[in-house]
Design a protein around this nucleic acid. Structure first.
Lengths: 239, 239
DNA sequence: AGGGCTCTTTGATCCAGGTCAATGCCGTAC
DNA sequence: GTACGGCATTGACCTGGATCAAAGAGCCCT
């Protein structure tokens, strides 16, 4: 199954430059002092990945945890026959490593060109024991993610295609901080949206068309949308 | 919407007797010393709930967090029109309160006669700050739950009815510690199973019948099953 | 032990979304 | 520009599970 992939490009070793980092104030590092950060830096390395490249596979020993610095990453699970469920899209500032123990419980793949901070998991856990505020931050993140997972279960278990797509657009816009009416970039393709929403690519496409015809959204190129009527869209989404 | 329900019976106040407690070694209390436990006890009270009684509603201010001491509790989310997604069944030793902040993000209802330990949330959080090992335990629980949520997303997004029911039976047996071939009690009704699996009651019932006809399970009364062929069932489940 | 109520099973039909199959269009490379 | 390749859209048809509608158990209560 898993021929070890072109597992991304590793960029330098220790030299992670945090002072200039875009996510210094949003990622887990935001709760660390300069000296604490220095220790974290010692177990960190910078990783680059190009679109489509796999960071790790479900089932592999979990050697690293990550912070997404730039770009979008998708986490997914596969069934034997290739059916795929994307369990989440991660953006800058997000942490990868809340759900797993010694083995990855999902695979991770770069959607766009991506920069990450990789931390060796074993020493990271040691650090966690020494910095309760870091642990606290992770717990808060886990809590938020858990709530998001529950919401997504409602989407997958009980919502119609139209409701799903509407929910996705609103939530993704929110997450990217794009206000209604502004151009929202969808870095993932229709197939990824489909595999996130438990639909097929055709149904996603048809549903976009329906929402467009109803004047709820405008499609701009194939990877941008503008939400024209957020409140009506929210009503459809069931939010 | 939410007329405050017959919110369970409150049994005594402070007098929580931990020394005899069935979950002293499995619940969050398992990581606390006797003196630490004494402090926890001071913000705890024992709560009883009979089948169908609501512990709290989604959206309500989250005043308490809980440990399930005995019985089964279901957590669920509703859409306006009544569609329901059950996001989890909790059993003895489980903690309720990982996913929410100041407001409950789901409703909780007793499936069977249930005993819980309720902790006032505000002082519980203070305690959390003082006991990093307690926080660590919560993080571990959150991690496990998050992984379980992801697995359930795969079920809801990508599995067929037969695969869903097979997965449910195996996972629930596992969780209750019932070995294959032993009688497995299903305390929830078909409707609850349906709302957990994103199906209808009829489809769940039909699927049970199919699995029975194929010799994979035996139904004993309406709320017990015996898994006759766990490996074939696992193959169907996609596990 | 019988009566009644609720939950479950089974049957018949329907439809949202999947599948299969072209066609169309955007974005890139030359 | 324009030609090409991959993604997205659209169309026609199919099907798994939903919906609607009876029967058939368990199980509690008297």
């Amino acid at each position: 199954m898993s021929e070890r992939p072109d597992v991304a490009t590793f960029c330098g070793g220790a030299q992670v430059r945090c002072d200039l980092c875009m996510v210094r104030d949003t990622a887990i590092c935001s709760v660390l002092s300069a000296s604490e950060l220095a220790r974290l830096t010692r177990i960190a390395r910078s990783v680059h990945a190009t679109p489509g490249h796999t960071l790790f596979h479900e089932g592999d020993p979990a050697e690293d945890v990550f912070t997404v610095v730039e770009g979008v990453v998708q986490l997914y699970k596969l069934l034997e026959d290739g059916r795929r469920q994307i369990v989440g899209f991660l953006v800058a500032g997000d942490f990868i490593g809340l759900a797993f123990g010694n083995h990855y419980v999902y695979s991770a793949e770069a959607v766009t060109a991506t920069r990450l901070c990789a931390f060796r998991r074993a020493p990271f856990i040691v650090l966690l024991g020494e910095y309760p505020h870091l642990e606290q931050n992770l717990l808060a993140r886990a809590s938020t993610e858990l709530a998001a997972s529950h919401e997504h279960m409602l989407v997958l278990g009980r919502k119609s295609a139209k409701e799903r797509v509407a929910t996705f657009l609103l939530r993704f816009a929110e997450r990217r901080g794009v206000p209604p009416g502004e151009r929202l970039d969808l870095p993932m393709g229709r197939l990824e949206i489909a595999d996130y929403l438990g639909l097929t690519i055709e149904t996603v496409s048809r549903t976009f068309t329906v929402l467009r015809r109803e004047g709820l959204i405008r499609l701009e190129g194939r990877s941008s949308v503008r939400i024209l009527d957020p409140s009506r869209l929210a009503a459809i989404a069931g939010l």
